[in-house]
Design a protein around this nucleic acid. Structure first.
Lengths: 87, 87
DNA sequence: TTTATATTTCGACAAATATCGAAATAATTA
DNA sequence: TAATTATTTCGATATTTGTCGAAATATAAA
């Protein structure tokens, strides 16, 4: 839970998730969407992977990233419980 | 959105939300649940309030905190969109 | 095998963050 | 009014985080 909220606590990482929602992308393709260096992006991807918010697979010299939704569902569950009105 | 994820990115602050889900509490009552100083807790409450995740009202010399769910609902919405399978 | 491309790791640094004790503010009680 | 209680603000500090350039690793192409 900690790692997930940490991973979500950054606009670039949240934008990465939104990009990956549309389609899988290589690290380079993701980097093209932002004005930050490759090492920085690689670090962001690492944090997202640590939180199990994305998965990656190697394809030749490329690394392809995909969105993982399992953990998101857990957080959704937690937030839903909180947001329910008490009675 | 930034301030909300920032506020949620701390176990103590998330625990505070869970406590407030059960009932409204004064700053002191919240502090009693944790092994941290009053100034630190006051700071946590401030971040939660900045994110509109809690509201506060004064009652004599006490300050009573309550959970606010409006912003949680917005985040829920965002996460739900992400978690939905693409087709 | 050399060169080029894609990505990550390393080392460093500036900015942000959590924490604390002391002091300040506000309201209550003696 | 003086003393007490509840909470926040202030100033300082240690830790974490985002960022970068350079170097390392891995694969593909010439």
């Amino acid at each position: 839970m900690n790692t997930v909220f940490k991973a979500l606590n950054d606009p670039i990482r949240r934008e990465i998730l939104t990009l990956l929602k549309k389609s899988d992308l290589t690290a380079g393709e993701i980097a093209d969407h932002f004005q930050i260096g490759k090492p920085t992006l690689s670090h962001h991807l690492d944090l997202l992977r640590q939180a199990d918010l994305v998965s990656s697979r190697k394809d030749g010299q490329f690394v392809i990233y995909s969105l993982s939704t399992t953990v998101l569902d857990e957080i959704l569950q937690w937030m839903y419980q909180l947001s329910q009105q008490k009675q």
